[in-house]
Each structure stands twice: as structure tokens, then as C-alpha cells.
């Protein structure tokens, strides 16, 4: 089935290349740069002139209230959405301008964990994780098997390899999806809510995994999460999105000591404050039909 066994050549794809290891030490330019990105859905501007640098080889946490566009930001980086204006540069390439072929080539260097997991429902857990390997490499079957089992072991699901996605719990689905997104050892991994639905032990394992991936292979990681404490404990850099803007960014210490009232409200989860909890809506009185009546 896999006639082109070019052992060492192909193996380079799944083992960190020396070049990449060197790169983490020397190249300090940001891996991802967003400049004045404007993106609107209908009339609603989700991003209104956002500029952001995501450093190479570091873990960056993106936080913010629900519905502010964190997932949208990841999709913009992955080239699935195009901004209305502004530039998005990933690994030196302007993503919105890329031709289809170049975009797909760039995406081979990216891994993305979707918020919903997005496993292929007609393939078993094993085949899901093996999918990127089968498509992008011509490794022999036994090597694919070893890699897949290694990745599944890392997320604690080696025993679940024969299950179908429909037989997994939400948290397990997320972990399989994580194993799949790291199968090719990409340069960049984007995690959309990796901790949602995980018990404390699994959470601890995932935190360790994300940290190890980053430190041992120098991956650039972008992590979207609501878990402020966990995120700040592992990230090197964090930014908080709200109202179509970056309202605060910096190292975890800088963020914790941030002067902005909005940032503090978000970090401590106060219901009242400058960050709106509600989706933009008409005056409450109007919706309940009590305008003009005095109370």
C-alpha cells in the first residue's frame, strides 16, 4: 500500500529537524503577525483594527469573554476566513494573499484543535490520528502505528484506539483531536479550548503535554482558553480580547498586574464591570414591552 518508503527522508517530517531546534534559539521574530486586522460578520465588526504579535517557540494564551471572536481569530490565522482589511503573516507568508496551493502547503505546518474536536466520524480513533500521517507522508504501516500509539499514549487514550468517535465522551473526543493535531509534529499548534470538559487529572496531563511539546520541540503554540489560572500558569505570553480589540497583553505577571479595569474584571470574573457579559442588545425595557411605563 505504501510503495514509496523513503525511510530517512520521510522520517524527517515526524522528528524535529535540527534546523527547527536551532531556529528556536536564534530567530526572535514573531511567528505570527497581525496588523490592523478588521473582520466583520454582517454589520458586526468582530475585530476592529487588531494588531498582535505571537512569538516564535512560545505558548501564547488568548483569553476573552465568550463570543468575542477567539475562534474567529484562529480561523483567520489558518486562512479559513479572510479579513476585510489588514495583514496576517504566518511564518513570513501573508496568509490572506496566498494562493490555494501555497495555503495548503502552509497548513501542513499547522495543527489545530477545534473547539468541537471535529473527528472524522466514519474513522476509528486510531485512523483519525493516522489520517494526517497517511495523507502527508508515505511512512510504512508499522511506523504509522508506532507514531499513532505514541500520540494516543500522550493523551492517555492508547486503550481507546479501536473505538469510534460516537463512542467517546466529550473530553475524550477533545483529547483524540489533540493527538491528531500533533500527529505531524507541526511548527504551530492552535488549541481552541483544550481544557473544556476535562477532569482535573486530564487537565493536569494536558497542561504538561502542551508545555512539553513546546519546550522539547520548540512548537509555537496558540491557546484559546477560559481557564485563567491554568492558562496563565503555562503561557509565556497572554492577551485578552474584548470588544473587537486587544484590551491587554503581556507576560502572565504583566497581565495579573494590568492597570486596566476591564482586564481585572475578566481575570477575577466579576459580573459587573466595563466588560459586557451580554451580547449587544436593544434596551431591555423595549424587549419586555415596558417602555413608557413608569415603575
Amino acid at each position: 500500500m505504501y510503495p514509496h518508503i523513503e525511510g530517512c527522508n520521510q522520517f524527517a517530517r515526524v522528528a524535529p529537524t535540527p534546523r527547527r531546534l536551532l531556529g528556536t534559539g536564534m530567530d526572535t521574530s514573531p511567528y505570527i503577525e497581525l496588523r490592523d486586522v478588521v473582520f466583520a460578520r454582517g454589520d458586526r465588526r468582530i475585530f476592529d483594527g487588531v494588531s498582535l504579535d505571537i512569538p516564535r517557540g512560545k505558548i501564547t494564551a488568548i483569553m476573552g469573554p465568550s463570543g468575542t471572536g477567539k475562534t474567529t481569530l484562529l480561523r483567520l490565522i489558518g486562512g479559513q476566513l479572510r479579513p476585510d482589511s489588514g495583514t496576517i503573516t504566518v511564518a513570513g507568508e501573508n496568509v490572506p494573499r496566498l494562493k490555494r496551493k501555497a495555503l495548503y502547503r502552509l497548513r501542513e505546518k499547522m495543527g489545530m484543535l477545534f473547539q468541537s474536536g471535529a473527528l472524522f466520524t466514519d474513522l476509528s480513533v486510531f485512523e483519525n490520528v493516522a489520517f494526517p500521517l497517511r495523507v502527508h507522508t508515505s511512512l510504512p504501516e508499522d511506523m504509522i502505528r508506532d507514531i499513532v500509539l505514541m500520540k494516543l499514549e500522550a493523551v492517555g487514550l492508547r486503550g481507546a484506539r479501536e473505538l469510534m468517535p460516537a463512542e467517546l465522551s466529550g473530553g475524550m473526543t477533545r483529547r483524540v483531536a489533540l493527538a491528531r493535531s500533533i500527529a505531524l509534529d507541526p511548527e504551530l499548534i492552535m488549541y481552541d479550548e483544550p481544557f473544556a470538559g476535562q477532569d482535573p487529572i486530564a487537565m493536569g496531563v494536558l497542561i504538561k503535554l502542551i508545555r512539553d511539546l513546546n519546550s522539547s520541540m520548540g512548537l509555537t503554540s496558540v491557546m484559546v482558553s477560559h481557564d485563567v489560572k491554568e492558562s496563565l500558569s503555562i503561557c509565556h505570553y497572554a492577551c485578552i480580547v474584548a470588544d473587537g480589540q486587544i484590551i491587554g497583553d503581556g507576560t502572565p505577571e504583566e497581565i495579573k498586574a494590568h492597570p486596566s479595569e476591564q482586564v481585572q474584571q475578566f481575570l477575577h470574573g466579576h459580573p459587573d464591570g466595563p466588560v459586557p457579559f451580554h451580547y449587544p442588545a436593544a434596551d431591555a425595557g423595549q424587549d419586555w414591552g415596558i417602555t413608557g411605563r413608569s415603575r
Binding site: R75, Q80, R107, E108, S116, A118, P132
Partner: peptide, 22 residues
């Protein structure tokens, strides 16, 4: 349609696999 709804097509795109072809 279900593959699209459950983001399977999107995740395929993000893996560098064109769902139109695959």
C-alpha cells in the same frame, strides 16, 4: 452536510487536505 456542520471539513482543510478533492 453533517461533515460540514461538525467541522470535519474545516478540520480537514486545516490539516492541509482539500476536502473538495478528498
Amino acid at each position: 452536510g453533517l461533515m460540514k456542520t461538525t467541522e470535519q471539513l474545516s478540520s480537514m482543510e486545516m490539516m492541509g487536505v482539500d476536502p473538495l478533492r478528498r
